[in-house]
């Protein structure tokens, strides 16, 4: 009887663990966090993590955010810029974060 229970349980827990991982990684993409959408905070995080003097280019953002299209990235960047989280540097394609000091 014990054997039957464990063989029944193993695949179940395996499945739910797998699902949990996927959800945790891509995570709640429509839920806004601290006033930002998931897209916006992804873009902000990438810009924060870049320590190049001229900031991050839109092309670099695109190459790292496979789930976002260029118009979506530009929208997020414009929003973050209007909120003051980021600002453009050498040109309108390069951005740095204000709170990365």
């Amino acid at each position: 009887r014990k054997n039957l229970m464990s063989t029944l349980r193993a695949p179940q827990s395996f499945h739910s663990a797998g699902l949990g991982d996927v959800r945790g990684y891509g995570g709640g993409s429509s839920l806004p966090m601290n006033g930002l959408t998931a897209h916006q905070s992804q873009v902000l995080n990438l810009i924060k993590n870049c320590h190049m003097p001229e900031g991050v280019s839109l092309q670099e953002l695109k190459s790292q955010l496979h789930n976002m299209s260029m118009p979506t990235i530009k929208q997020a960047v414009e929003f973050l810029s209007s909120e003051g989280h980021i600002y453009s540097t050498v040109d309108d394609d390069h951005y740095k974060s204000t709170d990365a000091e």
């Binding site: 810029s81 909120e83 003051g84 989280h85 600002y87 453009s88 540097t89 204000t98």
Partner: peptide, 20 residues
């Protein structure tokens, strides 16, 4: 560059206004 510094200051001001 001067323009970058100004952009940054403007952004910091916007951020400060948001956080009021």
């Amino acid at each position: 560059q001067e323009r970058i510094r100004q952009n940054k200051e403007a952004a910091l001001r916007r951020l400060a206004e948001r956080n009021v």
